[in-house]
Design a protein around this nucleic acid. Structure first.
Length: 558
RNA sequence: GCGCCUGUAGCUCAGUAGGAUAGAGCAACGGCCUUCUAAGCCGUGUGCCAGGGGUUCGAAUCCCUUCAGGCGCACCA
């Protein structure tokens, strides 16, 4: 158990015992015990921990909050605890001041656990599925995918650190309308390259990658497909280009630091009969009906304002239909306890109806959540540039990484919570890369490495390690922030907000830089030097752990 | 029209189940390198927390409402 958790638990027990005692003695009458909540006050004078419990009880007890607080405090037994003193302040806050130097415990924890410091077992034994990006495989990935990729990958890492067995998953939209258009576009380019004078489909994919695919295809296969009918030829072209795109996506994502455990094909849901089974199940449960030749889902029974089509009049299932079958596969066939998807804000309307449909098939939809990521707007020369894949004008993921770098890209896209709107100023990102906060954190790590490199020979092994030499406020502050790391991960997981880790890393780096300027590690006092070396080694380790979650490198030199 | 997200310092954003004097970074100004990396540190200022109501001991935070911006509301995905 980590030090923060130990202390919190202890204080809660003390408060709980005091509450019970006051009730037993008849000093206070409490019918329903309020939830105990400890907070860390902003002001240091208010102690390390604080509770507002006395201010939640006046209604029940008919007593003034200050009186309640006094009664409780009188009944608190702090005997052998971390608590040094308790004060009642303001309208009735009970503030706990800890015995000095409780922070030292964190140094042992980090030294013991090293690369695992911060991990917890909260969700041990549970399977977690995180689906993210899932970009259309009809062309290269763009900048919007870069944000979703960073958010998803880091959220997956966060879940992993809380004990989940995590699967990172990419859903390949290799069925449906856009694949038909993809085929039409490929075929048109093929025929044009073969010298036919035919028009390009109006709503086709106009990017050059389509033409390039067909040039490469012809270079390999010659003109043997020329005499086939378009209907015979399209599946061959689609198969060819799709595989090329997918392997390109895989390698682009690996270069971005993202490795998927599962690439799940939408088409496989058709092939396996999963979709038919799902239709059957929904029908059996009475949630479908036919109208105008289409099969509808009674979404209105699950809070939607209109029903949704599952199977079109032309007999083809909708994307929605496939998505239901897909999530049934996740929850039921593959036994995931929790499934999270990262979607762009333009898909948010889909969330409620999918949750409704999952409920309809008997899945507890509270285990399914979607992180809605607000769209990235691209600013170029101070102007908003719309991104559109179909017109081939989007900034490619790979170009972005080439220009900004993997570390800065991942860090930058995780600086803010997913639901913040985000203007990506391309000119600024490129020219400002030296100013990017990622360097601030990496620099702290490199500084520590540099000190340690120079210290190793000077360290006197015979001097005993004595943490009590660490008394400066910068030292204590640094240790407190180190001690916060495990909680920070738990909160990030609970709130599905991976950007907390990025901000934590910045806070930690700031605490270190302050320490660095206030306290020298290399000092004549050997015992002090030794204690400080342990402190910076712990800091180095936690920076590594945080950057590891972010998928950002921790360089030893800069 | 209905729904989701957003509105906090000049700019970009934090603000942890409603908590005690509202916080960072950037930008501006002034300091700090003859001992560990100045991509750093220290200091200085600025806020009708979009507006208006309400809930209560207490609201940037919760509820209602108005305004502004983004995104949805297909037999597209």
């Amino acid at each position: 158990m980590y030090i923060r958790e130990k202390i919190t638990k202890q204080i809660k027990t003390i408060i709980g015992d005091a509450l019970n005692q006051t009730v037993e003695s008849g000093a206070l009458t409490i019918e329903t015990m309020p939830d105990l909540f400890l907070e860390i006050p902003r002001e240091k004078e208010h102690g390390e921990y604080s509770t507002n419990i006395a201010m939640q009880l006046p209604k029940q007890t008919k007593k003034a909050p200050r009186f309640i607080a006094e009664t409780l405090v009188a009944n608190m037994n702090t005997g052998d605890s971390y608590i040094e003193s308790i004060e009642i302040a303001g309208p009735g806050f009970i503030n706990f001041k800890l015995k000095p130097y409780w922070q030292y415990a964190v140094l042992d924890e980090v030294a013991d656990l090293k690369a695992d410091y911060g991990r917890s077992q909260k969700n041990a034994g549970k399977k977690f599925n995180l689906e993210f990006i899932s970009a259309n495989p009809t062309g290269p990935m763009h900048m919007g995918n870069a944000r979703g990729g960073a958010i998803g990958d880091i959220l997956a890492a966060v879940a992993d650190w809380t004990g989940y067995a995590v699967t990172r998953e990419f859903y390949i939209n290799d069925a449906g309308n856009q694949i038909v258009k993809f085929g039409d576009s490929l075929d048109a380019r093929y025929r044009q390259l073969m010298g036919e004078d035919i028009p390009f489909p109006e709503d086709g994919y106009q990017g050059e990658d389509i033409t390039d695919h067909m040039k490469a295809f012809i270079a390999v296969n010659g003109d043997v497909h020329r005499l086939l009918t378009p209907e015979e030829r399209k599946p061959i072209l689609i198969d060819y280009a799709l595989n090329k795109n997918l392997s390109q996506m895989k390698s682009d994502l690996e270069a971005y630091g993202i490795h998927y455990d599962v690439w799940f094909s939408e088409q496989s849901l058709y092939d396996s009969g999963a979709i038919e089974k799902t239709v059957e199940l929904l029908g059996k449960r009475g949630f479908t009906y036919e109208q105008e030749g289409a099969l509808w889902f009674k979404a209105t029974e699950f809070g939607s304002d209109k029903d949704d089509v599952l199977i079109r009049a032309n007999g083809l299932p909708t994307y929605f239909m496939a998505d239901i079958a897909y999530h049934m596969d996740k929850f039921i066939n593959r036994g995931f306890n929790r499934c999270i998807n990262v979607w762009g804000a333009d898909h948010h309307g889909h969330v409620a109806r999918l949750k409704g449909a999952l409920t309809a098939v008997g899945i507890d939809a509270s285990n399914f959540d979607v992180v809605i990521m607000q769209l990235v707007r691209l600013l170029r020369n101070g102007e908003v540039a719309r991104m559109s894949k179909r017109q081939g004008k989007a900034i490619a993921l790979t170009d972005l990484i080439d220009e900004v770098g993997v570390d800065a890209t991942r860090f930058f896209f995780n600086l803010r919570s997913p639901d913040s709107h985000f203007d990506f100023d391309l000119d600024l990102a490129i020219e400002q890369s030296n100013d990017n906060p990622v360097f601030y954190v990496q620099y702290a790590h490199a500084r520590i490495c540099s000190i340690i490199r120079q210290m190793t020979e000077e360290l006197d092994q015979t001097v005993p390690l004595d943490y009590s030499r660490l008394v400066e406020k910068e030292e204590l502050n640094l240790m407190e922030i180190l001690a916060n790391f495990p909680d920070e991960i738990l909160i990030a997981e609970d709130k599905l907000d991976p950007s907390r880790i990025t901000r934590y890393a910045i806070d930690l780096a700031a605490a270190f830089h302050s320490f660095y300027n206030a306290c020298h590690v290399r000092v004549d006092d050997k015992a002090l030097m030794k204690a400080r070396v342990v402190l910076i080694e712990a800091t180095k380790q936690v920076i590594q752990n945080a950057l590891g979650i972010l998928g950002v490198s921790a360089p030893e030199r800069m």
